[in-house]
Simulated assay, not measured.
Amino acid sequence: MKRLYPANFFRLSRIFTVLCLAVCFYMTADTKKIYPALYGSVYLNSGDSIIADGNLCVGLQKKKKELRIISDAYTGNNRIIRTIEPETVDSLIVWSKTAPDHPHKFRFIKEYGWCFEAEHSPYISVCCYAPKGYRCGGNGGLWMYGKCKMLVIKDGKIYEFGQPDKRVDKKMLTQLESLVADDPALSIYISKAKGRRDKILRSLVNYNPEKL
């Protein structure tokens, strides 16, 4: 019997159908953007706060972008119901829905943008700025993108210490010693410190000049 169609006609037809469905799905998804969002608490300079949990979430922003309060996150009905100017935010705490016991604190530093606050004390803060943004995983872990910069803030002045995964060098240790010179115990620890910069910088949370 003579073939009415080429031998691979039905296989090509199935491939074409799958491609058409994929294009339709992409066009549908593109018309309704899904905004990445997390549970969180926004603390404003005015003293007010916004709790984003349950039906509400907060978008974790990068650089100097406005914060977004999102309703019905990760559904086709998700929508931005409020935007907040970053300069009006005192601090932001976010966490993954599946790991509420692993919160992460952010603050807006006008010279850089949204920064992860790794450590904070009454005397000093240690932050990390990721220019390409942040992501919080389902296990609660925090991912930072781009060439990150470690920052130390003391008495309103910002000191920059480069990428967190680089090893400390003598120049950096000397600068750190001068910053904590009025805490002899910490100064001695810093002078002998070795390893990654983020590890050494996080030890500054122990800085306490009042011990003198």
Rank of each mutant, 00 (worst) to 15 (best):
A185I: 09
V94C: 15
F9Q: 08
G156E: 02
N77V: 03
G54K: 11
N208C: 07
S91F: 08
R14F: 09
F10L: 13
E119A: 12
N139S: 13
D30R: 14
K199T: 10
S125N: 07
P86E: 04
E111V: 08
D90C: 02
C24G: 13
S178D: 12
I34L: 15
V126W: 05
I69W: 09
N77C: 09
N78M: 11
Y43E: 10
L12V: 03
S191V: 00
I81T: 12
K149A: 12
R11M: 10
Y112D: 06
F161D: 00
D101M: 10
C57E: 04
S49A: 08
A7Y: 13
I70A: 06
G59N: 15
I109F: 10
E66L: 11
A130T: 01
W95K: 05
Y74Q: 12
K171R: 13
Q61N: 13
L186S: 03
L38V: 05
F9L: 05
D53V: 05
D182W: 08
P184T: 00
V58L: 02
Q175L: 05
F16M: 14
A37I: 01
R196L: 04
S121Q: 05
C115G: 01
P164Q: 00
N45Y: 09
A29F: 14
P122M: 01
G113R: 03
S41R: 11
T98F: 10
E87I: 07
D198V: 08
S203K: 10
G113T: 02
K110Y: 10
R79G: 10
I15S: 14
F16I: 09
E160W: 03
D53G: 07
D90N: 13
L4C: 09
D165P: 01
G47I: 06
K65L: 14
M27Y: 12
T75V: 09
Y112T: 02
C115I: 01
K171N: 08
Y39G: 01
I158M: 06
Y129C: 05
E119N: 08
Y35H: 12
A193Y: 03
L67W: 06
Y129S: 06
V126K: 02
K211V: 07
V18P: 08
L173W: 00
T31N: 13
K170T: 01
K171P: 00
